[in-house]
Simulated assay, not measured.
Amino acid sequence: MTSLLLANVRPWGGPPVDVVIADGRIVDVVPAGTATTTGERIDGRGLLALPGFVNAHAHVDKSWWGRPWVPYGGEATTQGRIAHERAERDKYGIPSVDGAKAVLREFLRHGTTATRTHVDVDLGVGLRGIENVLAAAESLGNAVDVEIVAFPQDGVMRRPGVLDLLDRAAAEGATSIGGLDPASIDRDPVAQLDALFEIAERRDVGLDIHLHDGGELGAFQYELIIERTLRAGLAGKVTVSHGFALGELSTDRQARLVDQLGEAGISWATVAPVRSAPLPWRAMRDRGVAIGLGTDGIRDLWSPYGDGDLLRVALGFARLHGLRTDDELAYAIELATTEGARFVHREQHGVAPGSRADVVLLDAENVQDALVRAPRRELVVAGGKVVVRDGELRV
């Protein structure tokens, strides 16, 4: 029985169609005006239809969204941000169910219906942050499909007991475990990576490693990750997040590394920060190195920026990398939607039969127009349920 019909919409700016949805999935896409329904019918008014956005790198446990403004403080280094967050987070009730829920609601407002989120696991909070995020997602009816990366933000080897927490998280349902700057934070990259890969291989989970280190120090750690991925047979299960060094290397050095990353099946998650070096995205695409886009933290103790709009992140990626042609601009949208599917373990993600019914309607001429203007999301369907109508949240 049909539960929802999106009538007269234009997937990817193409000809108008009717999208038939039942039991949370798209079951048919037919020419506009030819579908019938026994459930709710929504007139799409010829609006542009895109798949729900996929946020491949988030930190939904950290935000003070919805609270009074929190001034930026502490030192502007990775270690400085860690120390500041550890000193201040309890004051602002971080992490909490309400805080995570506020971020997930902003994701929905902007059309994000799936996310891979890093959640801090450390000696201070244990696994409480993961419990809070899952409770927040459940309170929204799992409209945002959430995957958890148990993330050791305060280091691994330098904090005895964190490895045990990561192992517990993996045993209790986290789809990935994380790592952080094995060289500059733990100052023992071999020990950190060996320990993380041992858990990932034994627990059959993914591995997602934050790497901020630049230049040859960053490249050296890529090589260690590549070696271990191939040795453990974890192709398709390892992600480097940020990875700023890749854009800083010489062209020849980049090319060799991209070939090796492709061979090892390692993916890349980026938030396309404004002052970072552009990635060799064409070579990465050609060699099968998956790229995912993410928002990173949103209004947290690391940064006052962010609003949860992945479309704006896609625009930032396009501007950072000098994308100009229609095909290139469309590619930025694909990174934020269909290409993000693999980061949340989906075999398909689109406005097509068989996909989870995640559909975003925008008042835009085409995908290129949607990218450069980032108009409001007129309608968002998540898992077959209308969660945004006329730009307003309904959850």
Rank of each mutant, 00 (worst) to 15 (best):
214 G>D: 15
64 W>I: 15
162 V>D: 01
172 E>M: 04
56 A>T: 03
69 W>F: 12
84 H>W: 09
362 L>W: 10
144 V>Y: 11
326 D>V: 08
177 I>P: 01
194 D>G: 12
164 D>E: 13
207 L>H: 08
250 S>E: 14
170 A>I: 02
26 I>K: 08
375 P>F: 07
257 L>E: 00
265 G>W: 10
133 V>E: 10
6 L>W: 01
324 R>Y: 13
331 Y>I: 06
301 L>K: 06
378 E>S: 14
30 V>A: 03
45 R>A: 14
233 G>E: 08
174 A>N: 06
368 Q>G: 15
373 R>P: 05
27 V>D: 01
365 E>G: 09
295 T>N: 15
6 L>I: 04
60 V>S: 10
199 I>S: 02
262 G>S: 09
131 E>M: 08
310 L>G: 10
58 A>F: 05
359 V>I: 13
205 V>W: 01
192 Q>F: 01
107 F>A: 00
314 A>N: 11
381 V>A: 00
149 V>M: 11
36 T>H: 15
157 M>D: 02
205 V>N: 05
126 G>Y: 03
92 Y>H: 15
384 G>L: 09
306 G>T: 11
128 R>P: 10
382 A>L: 01
364 A>Q: 10
327 D>I: 05
204 D>S: 14
263 E>L: 12
203 R>F: 00
226 I>Y: 09
297 G>E: 13
151 F>N: 08
15 P>G: 04
167 D>W: 06
381 V>L: 04
352 A>T: 14
49 A>Q: 08
58 A>D: 14
27 V>G: 11
185 I>E: 00
99 G>I: 11
193 L>F: 06
213 D>H: 06
59 H>W: 10
87 A>I: 01
148 I>E: 02
250 S>R: 05
31 P>I: 03
226 I>N: 13
344 V>E: 14
332 A>D: 09
98 D>A: 11
289 V>Y: 05
80 G>H: 07
40 E>R: 15
381 V>S: 06
6 L>N: 02
24 G>Y: 12
300 D>N: 15
331 Y>K: 06
388 V>E: 02
73 G>L: 10
17 V>E: 07
178 G>I: 13
102 A>R: 13
137 A>R: 08
382 A>C: 08
1 M>T: 14
122 D>P: 14
384 G>E: 09
327 D>A: 15
70 V>E: 03
331 Y>P: 06
6 L>S: 00
136 A>I: 02
150 A>D: 04
292 G>F: 13
391 G>D: 02
97 V>K: 09
106 E>T: 08
77 T>V: 04
362 L>T: 07
56 A>K: 10
231 R>P: 03
92 Y>I: 05
79 Q>Y: 03
300 D>K: 12
176 S>A: 15
295 T>Q: 07
287 R>C: 05
263 E>H: 12
277 A>E: 13
110 H>Q: 05
338 T>D: 02
168 R>P: 11
290 A>K: 02
99 G>H: 08
165 L>G: 13
84 H>V: 00
184 S>N: 13
249 L>T: 00
107 F>G: 00
379 L>C: 06
391 G>T: 04
8 N>C: 14
134 L>K: 00
240 V>I: 15
238 V>P: 13
123 L>Y: 04
95 P>S: 02
110 H>R: 03
